[in-house]
Computed example of a mutant assay.
Amino acid sequence: MDRKVVRRLAAVMVVSGVLTAGAATVWWDPTPSYRAVAAEGAALTDAEQLEALAQQRIFFGHRSVGRNILDGLDRVYAAHEVDPPPVIEIAPGESPQLPPDGLLVHALIGENRHPVGKLENFDATLRAGLGEQVDVAALKFCYVDIRWDSDVEALFARYQETLSRLQSDYPDVRFVHLTVPLTTGPYGIRDHLKVLAGRDDNSTRERYNELMRQAYGHGELFDLATSEATGPDGVLRARELFSGYSSDGGHLNTVGSERLAAELVGHLTDSTP
């Protein structure tokens, strides 16, 4: 048989297999039926934890998913009728003189798809004077910072090196480490073909996340990725963003942002070593 014919038949068989395996999930459904059982995010925390968080001085470097979480945090405070901490947005590298009470300082760190630049930006912002003024500091990468072909070992080594120096230079700051967020899927023919070809972005993100989980223990690591992948029934079905938490397959909707915000509150106010 002609080689071209063989290749075409093989391609048809692969696509047919993908369609058969993924027929029920060809289209991404942002509102699956079981989302109706999702508990309100506010129910995952309480007024005492929220008041304790409001007394801390926190610096959070992030991009869009971080903004989703901050929006969810605002709604969680409102649901409990607790006054939130003042929120101050600064430019990366800026370090204003902060008021003495609890507050949440945040910045849109670096550029997406350039995680090393975000690390450098986070480091420079703390060293500009913020490191002497805050109790807690955290950097969150975005899902677009790690793709299927990313060198996660090199990035993790750079992350550890940067954060270790910061911890040494600012011993009074609690540095909280976050796993990289995930996206929904795979859904549809294109996503399944990427998985078959070894080009699944979430798999690479999870390789990085496993390095984080192995390096940082309880109290140090907020496992954002696992929280994103765990459904409202508490079941971790797959290492991907639970679609009921997302507005577009990557960012968090109201349900997702409130749940992640409430879980972060619990982490930041947990005094267990």
Rank of each mutant, 00 (worst) to 15 (best):
H80V: 10
V82P: 02
P84H: 14
P86R: 09
P86E: 05
I88R: 07
E89M: 08
I90F: 02
A91Y: 08
G93W: 07
Q97N: 02
Q97Y: 01
L98H: 03
L98M: 05
P99D: 02
L103A: 09
L103V: 05
L104F: 13
L104Y: 04
H106E: 11
A107L: 04
L108M: 09
L108G: 05
L108T: 11
I109Q: 04
G110S: 06
G110L: 03
P115W: 11
G117V: 08
L119T: 05
E120H: 12
E120P: 00
F122C: 07
A128E: 05
G129M: 09
L130K: 10
G131K: 11
V134Y: 06
D135T: 09
A137G: 03
L139F: 13
F141V: 05
Y143Q: 03
V144T: 10
D145L: 07
D145R: 02
D151I: 05
V152C: 15
V152I: 12
E153W: 02
A154N: 14
F156N: 14
Y159N: 00
Q160T: 11
Q160S: 08
Q160G: 11
E161R: 05
L163F: 15
R165L: 13
L166M: 01
Q167I: 00
Q167S: 09
D169G: 00
D169S: 04
P171A: 03
P171W: 07
